[in-house]
C-alpha cells in the first residue's frame, strides 16, 4: 500500500472490503435461484401456461415460437420470455381509446 492509499484509507474514502458473510449470502441466493428453477420442469411449464393465459387476453401470440427461459449472466439470473405477437385484439385497442 503506497502512501496515498494510506492517506485515502485514513480519511475513510475507500470502501471497506466486502464482508465474506455478505458474499456467501449473495452467492447462495444466486445458486438457489438456479437450483430451484432447475428442480422442476413442471414449474416452468406452469409458468409458461400462465403467461400465455394472461397475454392472450390482450393479444394473439404465436405459441409455436414462444420461448420462456431462465438465463444466468454474471451475477444475476433473468427470466427471458420471447413472445411473438400475431395481432392485438380489436377490443383491447378500443378499450384503450375509451380510457383516453
Amino acid at each position: 500500500m503506497n502512501l496515498w492509499e494510506r492517506i485515502v484509507r485514513f480519511f475513510g474514502k475507500e470502501a471497506a472490503p466486502e464482508k465474506t458473510g455478505v458474499i456467501a449470502k449473495e452467492r447462495l441466493r444466486l445458486v438457489l435461484v438456479h437450483d430451484r428453477a432447475d428442480l422442476s420442469e413442471v414449474v416452468m411449464n406452469s409458468l409458461r401456461e400462465d403467461l400465455i393465459a394472461v397475454i392472450s387476453k390482450y393479444m394473439e401470440i404465436d405459441l409455436s415460437a414462444l420461448e420462456v427461459t431462465l438465463s444466468k449472466e454474471d451475477g444475476s439470473v433473468a427470466l427471458t420470455a420471447n413472445i411473438p405477437i400475431l395481432s392485438v385484439k380489436r377490443d383491447v385497442a378500443l378499450k384503450q381509446k375509451e380510457a383516453l
Binding site: 464482508k19 465474506t20 458473510g21 456467501a24 449470502k25 447462495l28 438457489l32
Partner: peptide, 17 residues
C-alpha cells in the same frame, strides 16, 4: 464472533434464504 464481524452468515440470513 464471526457472525458479529460479518464473516459468517447470520441466523437471520439463513432463515431469509
Amino acid at each position: 464472533k464471526m457472525v458479529k464481524s460479518g464473516d459468517m452468515m447470520s441466523v437471520a440470513d439463513i432463515l431469509e434464504i
